[in-house]
Amino acid sequence: MGAKYDPARIRLANYPFALTMQPRFGDMDSLGHVNNVAIAALFEEARIAMNRALLGANHGGLPHERRPLPVVAARVEIDYLGEVAYPGTYEVGVGIGRLGNTSILQVCGLFEGETCLALCDTVIVHRSENGPAPVPERVRGVLASMSFPASAQVPAGSGA
């Protein structure tokens, strides 16, 4: 059975943003591995870090309103490719997989060195009081600069 993900996803260099992270002792399961919920939290923290780095502390909301851009996570999908151990230091790569009219697909990979241990796709929906609303142009422009893959170059011998 072949991989159901794009092979470009398992290369940290393809992600335009990366955050170094360390799981906590309390993140371990009974087998001594970092548990699935903690891995989801690492992905969430990295996504938020990218959003804050790009859009500011209020995630692109209007500064005078002092409230974040109104978004909600509509879907989170995680593929576990290897075991994540405690203690350890990991890199979480983040990029924008797709910008829709009202939604944003953020793609992430969790790496130990060059080895990808997990992948995460999260669909974020921009909201108004009446439901989904178009992503503001100023936010779209900033997020577009973080498209995945970070480089459109195809490695030699990849067959693409």
Rank of each mutant, 00 (worst) to 15 (best):
F17Q: 12
A18K: 14
L19N: 09
L19E: 14
L19K: 12
L19M: 12
Q22M: 13
P23A: 13
R24K: 15
F25L: 15
F25H: 13
F25I: 14
G26P: 01
G26M: 15
D27T: 10
D27N: 13
M28L: 13
M28G: 04
D29R: 12
D29S: 11
S30H: 13
L31Q: 15
G32R: 14
G32D: 14
H33L: 14
H33R: 14
V34C: 08
V34R: 01
N36V: 13
N36Q: 14
N36L: 10
V37R: 11
A38R: 09
I39N: 12
I39K: 08
A40T: 10
A40P: 04
A40E: 12
A40C: 13
A41K: 15
L42G: 10
F43M: 12
E44W: 11
I48V: 15
M50N: 02
N51A: 13
R52V: 15
A53D: 14
A53M: 06
L54I: 07
L54G: 10
A57W: 02
A57L: 08
A57S: 12
N58E: 07
L62H: 09
H64N: 05
R66H: 09
R67N: 01
P68C: 02
L69R: 07
P70Y: 01
V71R: 00
V71Y: 03
V71A: 03
A73I: 10
A73E: 04
R75W: 00
V76G: 00
V76H: 04
V76W: 00
E77K: 04
E77G: 10
I78D: 05
L81R: 09
L81Y: 04
V84K: 04
V84H: 07
V84D: 06
A85T: 09
Y86K: 07
T89R: 12
Y90N: 05
V94S: 06
V94D: 03
R98D: 11
G100P: 09
N101Y: 05
S103M: 05
S103K: 01
I104V: 13
Q106G: 06
Q106H: 12
Q106V: 15
C108T: 11
C108N: 11
C108M: 09
C108K: 05
C108D: 03
G109F: 01
L110T: 06
F111A: 03
G113K: 07
G113E: 02
G113W: 05
E114I: 06
T115M: 08
C116Y: 04
C116A: 15
C116S: 12
L117N: 03
C120G: 10
D121R: 11
T122W: 06
V123K: 04
S128C: 08
E129L: 10
E129P: 00
N130G: 06
G131T: 04
P132S: 14
V135N: 03
V135M: 10
V135G: 01
R138S: 11
V139I: 15
V139P: 07
G141Y: 00
V142W: 01
A144Y: 02
S145P: 00
S147R: 13
S147G: 14
V154M: 11
